[in-house]
Amino acid sequence: MNSKTQNKVAIGGLYGIAGFVVLILLALLGFILVSGVPQLSWHFLTAPGKAFLKGGGVGVQLFNSFYLLILAMLISFPIALGAAIYLYEYAKDNWLTTTIRTAIEILSSLPSVVVGLFGFLFFVVKLHLGFSILSGAFALTFFNLPLLARSIEDSLRTVSDVQREGGLALGLSRWETVSRVILPAAVPSILTGVILSAGRVFGEAAALIYTAGQSAPALNFADWNPFNISSPLNPMRPAETLAVHIWKINSEGIMPDAKAISSGSSAVLVIAILLFNFAARYLGKRLYKRLTSA
């Protein structure tokens, strides 16, 4: 076989493999969307669930998912940003930073059910936070922090060192160089990382089952006082999310239309995550254009 045929065979093989992956993905997506989208309606997206009757919605779960996501991001983003900046811009290579890096790597490969059980023992039981949004948000922070820190560190790495030299040589301090040159240059890539990790957090179930709980008490969307138990904003109430809802209906759902609700919820989840991904690309590109061409 000469090198030309070899080349052709290799390319053909790679096309085949890539096509196979795309096919699986499309089949999965297609199945979820085809069986789920017909269940979607305004009522389905906004109504509270029903335990024994048909016709329940996922309004509460959907709200819970977003609320938890926002809380988890508010807690984890500043910490992850600080950690990433320290590790990439300041830290010297020594045993301490090596330990931190290893810790982050181990943390990021922890199975999420382990994170969930840890969250249960520590936040729910030990700290008496109960099954609550707050416990869930902390557990999600543990789940999300290492992924986010690494993604931000990678974003900082994409900014060339000549930019750092340029800033320093201009008489900017280290911190001014990082905060006024490197971070703005890295923002589009950081944003993409944040949104993509938001997608992972949004779809996370195992870490929440034991922390945010599996019940979704009806909420009073007219009451925005976070201290009232039926207020959507109350962080101490149990809050089943969409992903947990899907798991629960499929394992112990007793409503007559359980299958339909599970299909509909899956479709909502997948569509939301797809939207996150598209938003990440779009915003990242736009922001980069804007920042680089004023």
Partner: peptide
């Protein structure tokens, strides 16, 4: 004491 480098390194701004 300012410095100009081998590789032009304008910041990614205007």
């Amino acid at each position: 004491i300012g410095m100009v480098f081998q590789q032009p390194n304008p910041f990614p701004f205007s």
